[in-house]
Structures are given as C-alpha cells and as structure tokens.
C-alpha cells in the first residue's frame, strides 16, 4: 500500500527538488551571465569620486528609503518592508529551513520560535495582500502591473500559506501539506530566474551600477 501524500512528499524532496534546483541555479547563472557579458564601456571621464566603493555602499544604503517619500506610497513602502523582512525571517529563521541550509552549505544558526515565525508569516501574507490590493487600486501600480506581477505575488504567497497550514495542521493531511509546501517552493524556484523574482539577485548588480555611476561623479546615490 502506498501513501500518495508520502509519495508526493518524497517526489518533492527528490526529483522535484532536483528539477527546481537545476532551473533555479542554472537560470540565475544564465541570467547573470546574460547580463554581465554584455559589459559596459570603460568610463573615460576622470573620476571625481570612488565609483567602486560607492557602488558597494549603495547595495546596502538603497535599502533605506529617501526621506519624506514613504508617505507618498505607504502601502508599497511599508508593505514592501514587511514582506521582505518577513519573508527573510520566515525563510532563514525557521528551523527546518536552517536544516536545509545546513545540509547544503554546512552553516547554521539559531532558529526562531514558533510564535515569531508564525506571526511573521501571517504579517508577511497580510503585506502581500496589501501589495496585491494596491496593484488593483492604486493608479500607478495598476498601470504598471502585468501578469508577471500577479504571478510573482501568488508564487511568493503560496509557500508562506502552505507552510503555515502544514505546520499548524489547519487542514489536510500534514504530510500532504508538507509536500504541497515543497511543491510551491519549487514552483517559486522554477519561476525565479525568469520573472521579476530575479530582482532578488539582480538588485545587487543594479544598485552597484547605480552607485558606481553616481559615485564616479562624486554625486550621492
């Protein structure tokens, strides 16, 4: 006798993960090569500031919004922060995820408790809902939104929701929900390199370029 939920879980942990990983890692590398091999011409104008250092600095400093801007797009800013921090915490501080990272890279750190993980997850999903809502209602967001954006929102929300359901046994067989959780993560991984999710990697390049262009001129970034 087989347990379909268990078989699905094993598929998700085995071939499913392998397929997703290959597309995820291969895709990211592909995209990064695709971008960086294009190259940029050496800037012949004598530099006034250190573009390299400011580029590096901007990778981090751009995480802080410009003064006074938050009030003009509160949903995007606050929702964006809650989502990003929440997703980060839920991913990197939930013990089973740390176990995965430990297995893959041999590094680990203390896990956060259930109360933290679950409230963060709930907040993160709420933030996603708010961001989705603003894509429907806010004129700027609405005019910019494409299918890709909704897909990305959905793909980001599903692992959070299914993870929450699996851990709390809200409904369904827990083994099945765990399998479904892994499958949603795998869907996210597969979509990652070829959708706007890729920004989670390419933002480093973009911020660096931005900072280095400005920095060479001695301008702020």
């Amino acid at each position: 006798m087989n347990n379909p939920a268990f078989d699905l879980l094993m598929w998700a942990r085995g071939p499913g993960f392998d397929i997703a990983l290959v597309i995820f890692v291969g895709g990211i590398v592909l995209r990064l090569f695709e971008i960086s091999i294009l190259g940029r011409k050496r800037d012949l104008a004598p530099a006034k500031g250190n573009g390299f250092l400011q580029g590096l600095k901007t990778i981090f400093s751009r995480s802080v919004p410009r003064e006074g801007l938050v009030k003009f797009a509160p949903v995007t800013y606050i929702g964006g922060y809650v989502f990003h921090i929440g997703f980060f915490v839920a991913f990197f501080f939930f013990a089973p995820h740390i176990a995965l990272i430990d297995d893959a890279f041999g590094i680990s750190w203390p896990a956060a408790g259930r109360v933290i993980i679950e409230s963060v997850t709930a907040l993160t999903v709420l933030a996603l809902l708010a961001l989705t809502y603003s894509r429907f209602t806010d004129p700027v967001r609405k005019s910019l939104t494409t299918f890709d954006d909704y897909l990305v929102l959905l793909l980001s929300a599903l692992p959070l929701i299914t993870g929450y359901v699996a851990v709390n046994k809200l409904f369904g067989d827990p083994t099945m929900m765990l399998a479904v959780h892994l499958l949603t993560v795998e869907a996210l991984m597969i979509a990652f390199p070829f959708t706007k999710l890729m920004h989670a990697v390419s933002f480093v390049l973009s911020r660096y370029y931005n900072g280095s262009i400005q920095g060479r001129k001695g301008a702020e970034s």
Binding site: R31, I35, L69, A73, T76, Y77, G80, D138, V140, R141, L144, T145, T146, D149, V152, K196, M198, H199, S202, F203, L205, S206
Partner: peptide, 9 residues
C-alpha cells in the same frame, strides 16, 4: 530592466 519589480516608486 531585470531588477524592476514595477513598484511604481
């Protein structure tokens, strides 16, 4: 273009 998430900020 790869990085844009159409946040509209």
């Amino acid at each position: 273009f790869t990085s844009c998430v159409s946040c509209g900020l």
